[in-house]
Design a binder for these strands. Structure first.
Lengths: 148, 148
DNA sequence: TCAGAAAGTTAGGTGCACCTAAATTAGTTG
DNA sequence: CAACTAATTTAGGTGCACCTAACTTTCTGA
């Protein structure tokens, strides 16, 4: 139930919302907190824009925000952020496996991640696992890429 | 040179531009022409929006447009549209191979396609080819998905 | 041929996600 | 504890990609 409700959320949230949540969770995990200024720097956007979005995410119930004070993800917000993060990681792992350059991976995943639905994600996940267990085919793929 | 210039174009063009070009080429291939009304119906947007974009694509040199008369892709526009179409097809084939449902494929490719860079596309292409030649691993992937 | 229908264009407006500049609040430290 | 600095918020904008309504042009058939 929690999974299905967060999936529904994920379907409705915009790419921008997903980027914010993902980054906020990451900041909380690494620094222990996520201030407006941190989020702004991390996403390379203005603090004013962050304030706006954070207020919106508060009204949407994804985080709790007190003006000038700070913010914390709600249960719903954290669940959603974790899904987004997992999806990001899965896509990154997949492309990494194929031998794509880190910078390209970063750029492409940043763009694609918001458009991958759960079924597609599951398929890529299953494929990634099989490729990891049986790397023979992967070797050929990388060779093909090196040659051309 | 033509390839690199169209790649540059592709990198600069917005998702909307890419969607228009892709659909225009498809209409030309199937009906022989692409009128404003056709494009609007196909993309499910208003004719007014199409007129606007078509005028923009004309100024950008991607197509030749005569008011009230009709449009034709320029060489640059057609090259770009072909790249976009190829990318779309490749992604569709890849997901199809993994056993993802057609409707999901349609939706996800529609979203992702604008964010896949040439290197990533090449990697997925090489992977798809290997999977087609050696379907053993693919069978396991599909089984995993069926089971869960 | 000419009137109505279909197609296309223009004008003006919306929401989103961003911005800068100018307040305002909070934190620091001499 | 006051003054400076850092952080945040508010106000007012921008560009993009869409919209509707109203107008113009083109096509079609009685």
């Amino acid at each position: 139930m929690s999974a299905s409700s967060s999936t529904r959320q994920l379907a409705r949230s915009s790419a921008a919302v997903e980027d914010y949540l993902e980054r906020i969770l990451e900041l909380i995990n690494t620094k222990g907190y996520a201030r407006v200024v941190d989020i702004a720097q991390s996403l390379k956007i203005s603090q004013a824009s962050v304030t706006n979005m954070v207020q919106r995410l508060d009204t949407e119930g994804l985080l709790k925000y007190e003006k000038y004070r700070g913010l914390a993800l709600t249960t719903a917000g954290e669940a959603l952020a974790r899904n987004i993060t997992r999806r990001h990681q899965l896509l990154t792992d997949f492309l990494k496996l194929l031998g794509v350059d880190d910078e390209v991976i970063y750029h492409d995943v940043e763009g694609m991640e918001h458009h991958i639905s759960p079924p597609t994600l599951r398929a890529i996940e299953a494929l990634t696992q099989q490729l990891q267990r049986h790397p023979a085919l992967l070797v050929k793929v990388r060779k093909d890429l090196d040659e051309n």
